[in-house]
Design a binder for these strands. Structure first.
Lengths: 155, 155
DNA sequence: TATTGTTATACTCTATAACTATA
DNA sequence: TATAGTTATAGAGTATAACAATA
């Protein structure tokens, strides 16, 4: 350990270098978005992942677990626990596929559809509040930029 | 704009509902940005967090651990391990503060400053590549939007 | 042999309580 | 009492190998 060099008091901290990096800002924004989203979803007994999985199953009834894992960009083993939770709560069912006895067809229950619709409305309202300072065009521009970044990673 | 995420067989999966949510896109973009950034930092023996901490210390020599934790929005206990790594590699030092014997002043070493500059250059080049499809104005607009989201979370 | 869903496991990241030594 | 740094720990999130049943 060193000797005495410097001291800081009630001083402002400069993030001059980091501020010019996109990753820095996206990480911080993501942190807020995720916390906000999870708080909104909590009354429904859902988290960001479980909600995303439920939405996908409602939008694509009959899909298989491997498809869902690919679509959500998560690993198959990690999806199992998520689906267990949704199934235990009676929001989805794993139905046997007659043409392939290894696979399950994922389907939403009536309750699952209803909860999904409510959660989606709550979510929409929450994001509208959070993004109130942005015009529809600005919002679309940000989403386009995010998509571009996502594509760039594959190249 | 396509709604198709992936083709596992002859079947397309629709993410129509999720596509309209900002959180969905920011999460996916963040995943790419972080993977990309960490790959760029690997040759320097740094990760995203250790790099961020190093940059902050270089930009704000003498700052204390509590200040740094606040600035990076991470918990104090988690910062300890990060600083341990930077200190073991001789990139920073924890120097005693004469006016407060509880605290340490964080300072970069010469080696730390040098590595920080190299890593920052590599980072800049990497982000320029990833964001090549965006004009400077578009980039600034995205960063402004991210800042707005970050502020909104506090309200 | 390859694939579907599963189990077990491990590694990172993050969050909280409580300790020590100072203030 | 309160604060700075630390320790221990627990919870998410994420990644890989390997297994049983089936293709």
């Amino acid at each position: 350990m060193g000797e005495v060099v410097k001291m800081t008091e009630a001083v402002s901290v400069s993030d001059a270098t980091l501020r010019s990096f996109m990753g820095y800002h996206v990480k911080r924004a993501m942190s807020v978005l995720q916390a906000d989203l999870n708080a909104t979803l909590k009354p429904f007994g859902l988290r960001m992942v479980t909600y995303s999985a439920l939405v996908m199953i409602v939008d694509n009834p009959g899909m298989r677990q491997t498809q869902l894992a690919d679509a959500l960009a998560i690993e198959r083993p990690n999806l199992v626990v998520i689906l267990d939770q949704l199934e235990e709560r009676g929001l989805i069912s794993r139905d046997k596929v007659p043409t392939d006895r290894r696979a399950y067809a994922l389907n939403p229950t009536e309750q699952g559809r209803a909860l999904c619709a409510e959660a989606t409305d709550a979510n929409r309202a929450d994001e509208d509040r959070l993004l109130a300072g942005l015009s529809k065009e600005q919002r679309a521009a940000v989403i386009a930029a995010m998509n571009l970044i996502e594509q760039g990673g594959e190249a």
